[in-house]
């Protein structure tokens, strides 16, 4: 279905990827009627490929319903893909049983969007942070207690907070607890699902700083999911822009902002409410935006973005564009970059 070329970043060609995602598909069946007959499917993730290297930050940016969270959950082995493969550290996740997955889960941890929901409200912080250690049977009780203190220090929380319930902490502090829990097993990859979108901006900046510091110290790789392009401009090394389950553009962070190629990326950039006139240089010339993301169960024909696109031409509604490697490692899914169809 997808004809993506295998993607590697030339600079890192010698290094082996920590995570290799190939043609990943996650379809949800739509059932109808008394006998729950399948009448269609929602293509939440529809043929996504990317690599993630140790210590790297890869951002997936898109609007609500684009499938970015599903992608994250599939990568974290919380949902089973319906197609494609995920290879983590040389092991193919799809083929592993639940028991065999356990060591992999130690290496991949998730930080959720809403800490109020991702921390059990009826457990004290000390129990929440110690849980990964208990589940993986690491250390004695005393060692675990020590480790909890250490982790809380790592995320700049006063150690006394361990006796509290999550409800007794502010949103930013809760998110720090979630990060401490994710770090407990010394993972190699953190999946950050909108880690700051529930937080105030002044707190968001602090959490981002913390994540950057932890990455420096432990060489963590991050897969960050967000709707906010300006947040990842400086945070991420590479960015994939997603729309209706597919990457529309994938490039290094600098390339993407200096030279956005896909009209959808342009629209996203143009929609960001800015606070500084200097930011204007990254904004494309005035674009009149229209429409909203369509229902993913019945995507438009051809290029899924064509009904909202400001550069649409005739072929767009008929031909589903491939993922063209336009410049070195700047991939774009748009017919504008296809010599056969461009007008």
């Amino acid at each position: 279905m997808s004809e993506e070329p295998a993607m590697t970043t030339p600079v890192r060609e010698q290094e082996s990827a920590l995570l290799e995602v190939r043609d990943l598909e996650k379809y949800y069946p739509i059932t109808a009627g008394l006998f729950r007959r399948q009448v269609g499917s929602v293509r939440a993730v529809d043929g996504v490929s990317f690599d993630l290297y140790p210590g790297e930050t890869f951002a997936i940016v898109g609007e609500s319903g684009c499938g970015k969270t599903t992608l994250a959950k599939t990568v974290a082995a919380l949902q089973e893909p319906t197609g494609g493969s995920i290879v983590f550290d040389g092991r193919s996740i799809g083929e592993l049983s639940n028991r065999e997955l356990k060591p992999v889960r130690r290496q991949v941890q998730v930080v959720y969007q809403d800490p109020a929901s991702s921390l059990n409200p009826r457990k004290r912080i000390k129990a929440i942070v110690a849980e990964p250690l208990i589940v993986h049977d690491i250390g004695t009780k005393a060692e675990r207690r020590e480790r909890v203190d250490e982790l809380l220090e790592q995320v700049d929380l006063p150690v006394e907070y361990k006796y509290r319930y999550p409800g007794g902490l502010s949103g930013g502090q809760q998110q720090r607890v979630a990060i401490a829990r994710a770090l407990a097993l010394n993972p190699k990859l953190l999946v950050l699902d909108e880690p700051t979108s529930a937080l105030d901006v002044s707190v968001q900046a602090k959490v981002i700083k913390l994540l950057e510091r932890l990455q420096r110290e432990y060489g963590l790789a991050y897969l960050i999911i967000t709707h906010d392009l300006s947040l990842v401009k400086n945070f991420a090394d590479r960015i994939g822009v997603m729309y209706l389950g597919k990457f529309m553009e994938l490039a290094s962070s600098d390339d993407l902002f200096d030279n956005p190629m896909n009209p959808y990326t342009e629209q996203l950039l143009s929609a960001i409410p800015i606070v500084d006139d200097e930011e204007l240089k990254y904004k494309p010339a005035e674009i009149s935006l229209k429409g909203e993301a369509p229902d993913p169960s019945s995507p438009p024909s051809g290029c899924s973005f064509h009904p909202r696109c400001h550069k649409v031409f005739d072929a767009c509604s008929k031909i589903d564009p491939a993922f063209y490697d336009v410049e070195s490692d700047h991939h774009v899914r748009c017919l504008l970059y296809d010599d056969d169809h461009r007008e």
Partner: peptide
Amino acid sequence: SIPKLTEF
């Protein structure tokens, strides 16, 4: 504190 396109 606001993330900006220029720098953050």
